[in-house]
Amino acid sequence: MTAMLRARGLGKKYRQRWALSDCTLEIPAGRVVGLVGPNGAGKSTLLGLAAGMTTPTTGEIEVCDGRPGSGPAQLAKVGFVSQDTPTYAGLTVAEHLRLGARLNPGWDADLARGRVERLGLDPSQRAGRLSGGQRAQLALTIGIAKRPEVLLLDEPVAALDPLARRGFLQDLMETVAEHGVGVVLSSHLITDVERVCDHLVTLVDSRVVLAGEIDDLLDTHHRLTGPRRDPATLPADQHVVTAVHTDRQTTLLVRTESPIIDPAWTVGKVSLEDLVLAYLDSPAPATPRPALEVLR
């Protein structure tokens, strides 16, 4: 199976600081990937590397089986909308579409025109006079209408109000479903990711701490509540992500492939938000990291 993104030992250093280190990932084609993590965790760096805006310091990355930014064919395969959704302030909406048509051999003019019409953007309006949400929509339109295999979106909804955000994501999902394009979407809002993504990558402190299909992740993580107990006495295949103890009670978040059979535990489901927060909170795990799961 081809991967839409494959990284091996990928790292990027800016001056003295590693913005991303030792990142190994393999994301199958056609997924909608949520890239989450606190600010400065390396989300934009990873997307920049995938788009070919920057080159790695260590390791390698492939997007759709090609080195990012290696040539026009590779650029055509990847759509990238960066965080500030840049547009040319002096160019009109129609001119932006013309720009897209001129610079992309695979440009889908009907798609672009249709989207602009549906979004109610005035083609003769200068981009500098659009609202933040409209600008984001225009940038996304250009990204989609070049008909890439993978669409990389860096915090596309950060500048939008909640209503516009919902509309944007809904619209994005419709387009994705229609054209079968893979998406990597960074966000610090887990609810957004939960709404649209089927795959999750969590970055903390420039490292991948959790990656996988969201359904799998939810199925293999459990909240265990029971009498106070030392987590070290758990079966070997249960990895503790977080542990909270009170005088009489212990609450654990564990990851395991096998069912929980110990009757002392009350087993509860974990929400995606709780799961991600648990990984953001826990210090870099010394036990085998779930991130390794996507390795072969």
Partner: peptide, 17 residues
């Protein structure tokens, strides 16, 4: 300065061209 390099360099034209 305007960030538009991230728009124009991500079309199907290399920045060299």
């Amino acid at each position: 300065e305007n960030g538009t390099h991230r728009l124009v360099w991500n079309q199907s034209v290399t920045r060299t061209r």
